[in-house]
Amino acid sequence: MSQLAAAKPMSTRAKSWLRMRAIARRHAYVLVRSPHRLFDVSLWPLVDVLLFGSLAAFVGTSGSTPAAKASGYLLAGIVLWHVIYQSQIAMSTGLLEETWTRNLLNLMVTPLREVEYLGGVALFGMVKLVIGVGVMVLGALTFFSFHTWSLGFGLVPIVAVLLIVGWAISLFVMGLVLRFGTGAEALAWGVMFVLLPLSGVFYPTKALPALMRPLALALPTTHAFTALRSLVDHRGTDWSQLTIAAAGSAAMLGLSMWFLVAMLRTFRKRGYITRYT
C-alpha cells in the first residue's frame, strides 16, 4: 500500500495549519539565507532606537516638563511604530518575494487557499515582529535606560490595534501588487512614510498644520498613539481613544480584505499570472 494511502486522513483544519506553517517556514528560509534581510529585524530597528533615543536624550537635557515628556514620546513612539512597520513589511514582502522570484504560479496551482497564505505570512511576520521589536526594547533599555514594559498592560491593546493596522495596510498593498504588478511595490514602503507624520507617532496631532488635522483624526493609528502618550504621561489607559482606534482598525481591515478579494478576482479574470511566468 502506498504511503499516501496508508496515511491517516487529515482534517481540513489540520491541513490549513500545516499549510500555514509551511508558508511561514518558506519565508523563514528566505530571511535566514539572505543576510541583508536580517538587517530588517536587527540593524535598522537598532539604528532607529539610537536615532530617536539620542534625540530624546538631547531634548530631555533642557529640563523642562514638555521636553521630558517629548523624550518619552520619542522612544515609546518609535518602538511602537515598529509594530506597524514590521507587520506590514513582513506580509507585503511575503507576496512581493513570490512575484520577484516568479513563484506565484507554483503556489497558485496547489490547494493552498488565499487565507492560508495570508495566515502563513502573518505567522512569519509575528516572528519578525517579536525579533525586531525585541531588539528595540533591549536597545532602548541598554542605551537609554528606557523600560518599555514600565508603560504597563495598557500597551497590549495598543499593540493589537497597531498590528491590525499593519496587516490592513499590507493587504491593501498586496491588492495593488496583484492589480498593477511589482511597480506598485514602492507603496509597500511609501505608505508608511505618509502614515508616520499624520499619525502623531511622536507628538500630539495638534502640532500638525491645521489642514492636516482632520485627516490625522480619521486614522486609527492617531488614536492608538494618543493612547500611548497617555501611558507615557502616567495617565493610565485611555479607553475612549482605544475604542476609536479599535473600531477604525477593524473597519480598515475589512476594507482592505474586500479590496484584496476584488483585486484577486481581477487578477484571475485578466490572466495577470502571465506577468510572473
Binding site: M10, A22, N106
Partner: peptide
C-alpha cells in the same frame, strides 16, 4: 517554472508536499 529560491531541494519538496496536506 523556477524552483522556489533559497531552499534546498528536500526543503522545497517538503514545502510543496505540505501544501498538499502531507
Amino acid at each position: 517554472l523556477p524552483l522556489t529560491e533559497r531552499m534546498r531541494v528536500r526543503e522545497y519538496l517538503r514545502l510543496y508536499a505540505q501544501l498538499y496536506g502531507i
